[in-house]
Design a binder for these strands. Sequence first.
DNA 1: ATCCATTCTGCACGTTTGTGCATAGAGCTT
DNA 2: AAGCTCTATGCACAAACGTGCAGAATGGAT
Lengths: 324, 324
Amino acid sequence: MMRSRHSDALRAAQMYYLQDLTMDAIARELRTSRSTVSRLLSAARDTGLVQIQIRNPLDTGPELESMIRREYNVDVHVVPVLESLNEAETLDRVALQAARTIGPLVDSNAIIGVAWGSTLSAVSRHLTRKITHDTVVVQLNGAGNMHTTGITYASDIMRRFGSAYGARVEQFPVPAFFDHAATKAAMWNERSVQRILDLQARMSIAIFGVGSVEADYPSHVYAGGYLDENDLRMLAHSDVVGDVATVFFRRDGSSDGIVLNERSTGPALAQLRQVRRRICVVSGASKINGLRGALTAGLATDLILDEATARRLVGFGGVNPANG
Amino acid sequence: MMRSRHSDALRAAQMYYLQDLTMDAIARELRTSRSTVSRLLSAARDTGLVQIQIRNPLDTGPELESMIRREYNVDVHVVPVLESLNEAETLDRVALQAARTIGPLVDSNAIIGVAWGSTLSAVSRHLTRKITHDTVVVQLNGAGNMHTTGITYASDIMRRFGSAYGARVEQFPVPAFFDHAATKAAMWNERSVQRILDLQARMSIAIFGVGSVEADYPSHVYAGGYLDENDLRMLAHSDVVGDVATVFFRRDGSSDGIVLNERSTGPALAQLRQVRRRICVVSGASKINGLRGALTAGLATDLILDEATARRLVGFGGVNPANG
DNA sequence: ATCCATTCTGCACGTTTGTGCATAGAGCTT
DNA sequence: AAGCTCTATGCACAAACGTGCAGAATGGAT
C-alpha cells in the first residue's frame, strides 16, 4: 500500500523517540526488518519529521554565553569546536550546527531573507529538510560583480534553502554594488525589483554572516572583484570594520555617511533591524571586528559562532586584536 | 571544576545531536571516557536539555489523524500501539508518549492546570524534567470523597508535574463534589479558594483525561465513592456520557441543567474552553462515548490517544458502540 | 588525619544500530 | 509478457552504544 513510506516513518519515529522502543521491537510491529526501521528513522530525521533542539536554560549556561548575551542582548549559540581544527573544519561544524539550529525556527508562511558568502554557502549545504507551506526564500542582496553575474553562486545557496523547506525562491538579479547610485535609484523604481524589496520588507527571518575588513582571509566582498581600489580606499577612510549583506558599518555600529552603501544592494541596517528574527552565523576569530560592529549595530537577534571567536568576543582567551 | 556536569552535558548534546559526532569523538574532546559521554547525553535528555519533537506535517499525516482533525478541529497525536497489548500496557505507552509530547509545550511562566485520574497518574510518572522558571502547576478539581481527603493521590500527580518542570504546586484541597451547592458557593468566596480559582482562570495549559460513564472499567469518579446512588441515577436521567475534571456533559457536548455540576469543583466547561492549550489524553477504546462528548464540547485543542480508540472515534475498525 | 558514605569514572561485555552488497520487487517501455 | 531501470529490502558484518561492576575521587563528619 502507498501509506507505507512516510506514514511508517512517522510511526517509527514516534515509537523510537517518544516511546523508547528499540528498532527491533519497532520492526516487529511494522512487520519489516530492523534495517528498514533504521532507514525509516534516518529518513524521518532528514525530512524534518523529527526535530531535535538543544535548549540551554538561559541563566545556567556557561559563563561565556551569558556574558555575550548580556553585553549584546542577543541569543547566543556557541558551537563547541576543538581549537586545533583548521578554519575549514571549524566552518563546517559551525555551519552544520547552524543549519540544525535554524531548522526548528522555520515555519509555514515564513519569509526568509538569505545573504550569500562562504558562511552561508556552508550553512546551505547542511540544511535538513522540513516540510512547510507558502514559505518564501528571498535573496538579501545582489551578487553580481565586474566579472560575473554571480547568479550561479548565490542561487546555489538560495536553491538549497528553498528545497530544504519546500519554499519558493526569489532571487535578486542585480550586482552587489551599482557603479552609480543613480542607477540603483532607477532600478529601485522598477516593479520587478520592488517585488523583491517588498518581500524583504516583510521578512520574518533573516540569515547572514558578517564580512570583516581585517579578516585573515578576507570575505568575498573585499577580495572578489566587487570593489575597485577607489572603493577600498574610501572604506579605509570611513573607519569601516565590516559588512552584513554588503552594507557596511563602523566599529560603533553606525553607517551614516558611508557613501558605498548608497550603491549597495543590501537592505539598510535600519530595515534589517525591523526583522523579527535575525540570525547571524560566524566562524573564524578573524572576523571579530566585523562581528563586534554588527552586534553593536544591533543587527542580530540570534548569534551562532564557534567557541574561539566567542572567547575573543568577550576579550579572554587568545590575543586581543589590535584595533584603531 | 564545577562547570563540568551541566555544561559538559550541554556541549556533549550539541556535538552529538547537532554535529553528528560519535560519542567516542566527543569523549576525546571532553577528555573523558565514552561511557561518561553516554551518561552525559542521557542526563541531557532527562533534564530536558535535549528536546525531541515529532511534528507530522498536518496534511500528509495518515488518514486517521486528518479525519479526526477535520471532524473535531483538534490537533491529534495517535499513539501507535499494537492491538494485542492489554489496557495497562496501552495506557503506559500512551502516557509515555503524552509526557514526551507535553514537555516541549511547557515553558517558563506557564500556568498548568492538571486534573487527576488514572490517566493523569500514568502521564505524571513519565514526565521528563525540563528547567523552567515561575511556572505554576494548579490542581483543576478537588479530589476528596466520602472516605478520604484524596490529597495523597491527587497530590502525588501534582508533585510529579511540579518537580518535572521545577514549578510551584498549588493544590486544591476540597472534595471532588460538595454535598450541597450552597457549601460550594460559600467556599468559592473564601480567599484561599479564590487564589486557586484565579490561577485556574489564568491557565495557559490544561491537561486532563476524560471519564466515560460506560467505560469497561469505569473511571474513578463513577466507582470510587465520589457519588452516591442518588447521584448516579440523576446522571443516568440527564443523558450524561462523561466528564472532564468531574464536570459532566452530554453526548452533544452540552452541560446545562446537569445539577451535579453545581456541586462539582472542576472548572466550568466554558471556562475550560478559554484556555489556550487544552490537552486531552485518552487511552482505552471504552472511553469512546465520553471522548466524543468532550470533543463535541470543544474542550480540547490537543488530543493524544491510542490507535484503537482513534479508529473507533472515526467509526471504523472495531464494533461501533451502541448508544442511546 | 582518618573514616565513612556518596558520587563519579572507566572497563568489559552484551546489545543495539548503521551500512555495503546482493537480491527482490515495482514501475515503465516495447 | 519480456526486458529494463530504479528503488526498497534483508542479510551480515562492523561500528557505536548502554550498563553492571569495581575501583577512584569527593566531600563531610569525627
